[in-house]
């Protein structure tokens, strides 16, 4: 299976930071509340949380993408 990584549409994201609450292992917030996402692929044990983070983004700004 190809590892997937989390990407964010920076224009759509409004910085409310829900995602960091759902997946703190991979998403931190900067000084203004915008996500800093780890570039590495999502490890298998976090996949479930990553999917939940993507689904919980109110702006539909988060995506799981096959790693390039």
């Amino acid at each position: 299976m190809v590892a997937q990584r989390i990407t964010v549409n920076r224009i759509a994201c409004d910085g409310h930071g829900l995602c960091a609450g759902v997946l703190p292992e991979m998403i931190k917030l900067d000084d203004w509340g915008y996500p800093i996402i780890e570039a590495r692929g999502v490890p298998r044990e976090l996949m479930e949380h990553a999917r939940r983070a993507v689904d919980s983004c109110p702006m539909l700004a988060l995506h799981l993408e096959d790693r390039r």
């Binding site: 920076r10 224009i11 994201c13 910085g15 915008y34």
Partner: peptide, 12 residues
């Protein structure tokens, strides 16, 4: 001013 990190980070 469409993306948060650019809008607020550059301004700061």
């Amino acid at each position: 001013r469409q993306c948060g990190p650019c809008t607020f980070g550059l301004r700061a």
